[in-house]
Design a protein around this nucleic acid. Structure first.
Lengths: 159, 159
DNA sequence: TTTGATTTTGGATAAAAATGGAATATAATG
DNA sequence: CATTATATTCCATTTTTATCCAAAATCAAA
C-alpha cells in the first residue's frame, strides 16, 4: 500500500484549519502523530513526519560557533527555523496552520485547498496555485521529452 | 518536537517589552531562564539560551595576546561585548529590551514585531525588516530553483 | 536625608482568538 | 434504498493577547 500518495481536495475552515482525509491521517498515524510544517519556496506548506524532517536537517557540528561567524549560516538557520514548526494532527484529523504560514501559501480561510502526496509527506496548496504548479510540471516534462527525442535523432543512442 | 522554531507576530509595548508566545517560553524554560540578548549585524536582536551564547564565544583562544596585536580582533571583542547582555524572561513571559538594542533593531514602542525561530534561539525583528529579510531569502531560493530547472532540461540528469 | 516626580516592573482584567467537540448535512457503499 | 462513512458547520470552552493600573524602584532637587 502506497503511503503519502494521491490528491485530495479540501477546504480551509474559518479558523485556518484543514481536515485531512482518512487515508492521509492513516499514513501519518503509522509514523507517530507529531508532524512538522514547513513552508516551501514554491508557495505551499509541506507536512512531514518528524523523522523525515530531521533527516532533512542533518545536524551540523557546532552550530552556535558558526552562527557567530557567518551571516550565510545564520540565514540558513533562520530559513529553516522560521519556516518550520512542530504541530500535531488532532483527534478529529485536523491540522491548524499558523497564520503566517497560511499567508505564505495563499490559504485564505474559507478557500479551497489541495492536499498533495509527495511520497515522503504531503503538501498543502491553494487550489489556484496547485493548478499552476501542475501546469508547470507538465510543461517541463514535455519540453524535456522533446529534447530527449531530438537528442535521439542526433546521436541514435540516447537510450 | 522541534525547539526554537516557528514565526510569531507580536507587539512592542509602551515600555519596550515583548511578550513571547507560550511555545517560545517553553523552549527557553527547558534550558534555564537566563538568556543573552545579542544585536545582529542584520539589524535584529537575537535571544539565545546562555549555554548557546557561551558556546559561541568559548573558542576564542588567548584573547589578551591577540587584543594587543590586532584591531580586527579588538573590534570583534567590542562587537560581542557591547552588543550582548544578559536578561531574564519574566514570570509573565515578557522580555525587556534595553533602549539601545531596541533602537538598533528599529523596534519602536507600540510597533509590530516578529519573533523568529532560528533553531538555536529566537530573533526579534521589526515587522517591516522581517518582511524584507523574508523576501530576500525567498527571492534567492526562487532564483536557485529556476536555475536548477533549467539545468535539468539541458542535461536531463541534474537529480 | 527627605520629599516629590518619573520611570520601570509586575500583575490583573477584559477582549479576542484558538481549540476541541458535537451535531447536522452530504456523499459513498452495499 | 438503507446504512455507513465522511465532510462541514456551529458552538462552548479554554487559552492567549492586549490594555490598564498599582506597586516598586530610580532619580532629582531641596
Amino acid at each position: 500500500m502506497l503511503a503519502f500518495c494521491g490528491l485530495d481536495r479540501c477546504s480551509v475552515d474559518a479558523n485556518g484549519r484543514i481536515k485531512l482525509s482518512p487515508r492521509v491521517i492513516e499514513d501519518f498515524a503509522r509514523r507517530g502523530s507529531d508532524v512538522v510544517l514547513h513552508c516551501l519556496p514554491e508557495g505551499a506548506v509541506a507536512v512531514y513526519p518528524e523523522d523525515i524532517y530531521l533527516a532533512m536537517r542533518s545536524a551540523v557540528p557546532d552550530p552556535a560557533k558558526r552562527a557567530a561567524e557567518s551571516v550565510v549560516f545564520r540565514r540558513s538557520l533562520r530559513r529553516f527555523g522560521a519556516w518550520s514548526q512542530s504541530e500535531r494532527i488532532s483527534a478529529q484529523g485536523r491540522i491548524t496552520l499558523p497564520a503566517e504560514y497560511r499567508e505564505h501559501a495563499g490559504l485564505v480561510p474559507g478557500s479551497d485547498a489541495m492536499v498533495v502526496g509527495n511520497e515522503i509527506g504531503v503538501e498543502i496548496w491553494s487550489r489556484e496555485r496547485w493548478l499552476a504548479e501542475q501546469q508547470m510540471i507538465l510543461e517541463h516534462e514535455r519540453e524535456k521529452g522533446e529534447r530527449e527525442m531530438e537528442s535521439d535523432l542526433e546521436t541514435g543512442r540516447s537510450i
